[in-house]
Simulated scan of single mutants.
Amino acid sequence: MKYKLTTGDYVFNSINYVVLTLFTLTCVIPFYYLFINTISDNTLVTKGLIVWLPQGIHFANYIQILKIDGLFNSVLVSVGRTVLGTVLTLVGTTFLGYAFSRPEFWKRKIWYRFVLITMYFNAGIIPWYINMKNLGLLNNFLAYIIPSIVAPFSLILFKTYVESIPSSLEESADMDGAGYMTKYARLIMPLSKPIVATLAVFSAVGQWNSFTDTLFLMTDPKYYSLQYMLYQYLNESNALADSLRQAAAAGSQVNLATVLTPTGVKMTISMVVVIPILCVYPFLQRYFVNGIMLGAVKG
């Protein structure tokens, strides 16, 4: 049955298209602006003259970033902690969330509140550092993984989502003799793809962007994450830019258009860090909104 659009429908649809187009542009333009500034003449970028179109196109900024000592190892560390940390976070959080959703779980309300209270209270950086040291997690890759295995906020979302699944499905599995592990692996997890994808995005973004744990816990360069390496490089960019400009002033053959500047370093590092997330997110986006809404229906 076809529905004939009225004048009001056309007006409403037109307004929707305009508003959504403007909203899309507000999301895309910052990334576009960031990118064209990373490939433009660095002297023009520093003066703020690059707005809509790149000028003096070059890729020297990215080439210089790729020349950082230890960069490849730091990429492996960041990818490793993101992949392994996300997988273990999903396993730990979803299994515990499923356990807390079962009425027969012994004293589940007490244990559930015991986990949630960590969202609001913590001992602070110094006790946290001492605890990590006593656990032997200084200069240890497991320091990136173990503390994030259970994420309280993600646990709330998953527990709420599981409680929205009809209990009749589990009852039918019970009649077939399925145990808790079987129901978790073959029933709950396949039905929870939207919320699991949402939690995966949260965990992966958090792991990829984190660098404070490296700052406090790692002194061995082989455990430095990509974000920490770029953070160090950013701090050194002022001295690097000054030395190159002094060489240029002294008559050396230095192309100032491609000399890294603090502004150019900031923008290039931002692009390097955000590109992997931009590549992964579109594949999980279709689950994201559905998962976050379904996981937030109940308290």
Rank of each mutant, 00 (worst) to 15 (best):
N209E: 08
A241G: 05
M218H: 03
I146N: 01
A204R: 07
A248K: 11
G251R: 11
P194N: 06
W128K: 04
K159T: 15
S167C: 05
A185N: 05
F141M: 03
L191W: 12
G179D: 11
A248G: 09
I156S: 02
L116V: 09
R245H: 09
N139Y: 09
W128M: 07
N238W: 12
G177L: 13
I165E: 02
Y231T: 04
L116Q: 06
Y223G: 01
A185I: 07
N122A: 14
V162C: 09
M119A: 07
L199W: 03
K193C: 04
K183I: 14
A178H: 05
Y184N: 04
K133T: 13
L240Q: 13
Y129P: 00
A249R: 10
P127N: 10
P190V: 09
W128F: 12
G251N: 10
G206R: 09
A143I: 13
T219S: 11
M132Y: 12
L138I: 15
L169R: 02
V201D: 03
S225P: 10
Y144F: 14
V205Y: 08
L116W: 06
L240Y: 15
W208S: 01
N134S: 15
L157E: 01
F114C: 03
D213S: 11
G177H: 13
T118M: 04
I145F: 05
N122W: 14
T182A: 15
V205M: 14
I165V: 13
L199R: 00
F153Q: 03
S252N: 10
P152Y: 12
L215A: 09
S168A: 15
E171Q: 13
A151Q: 15
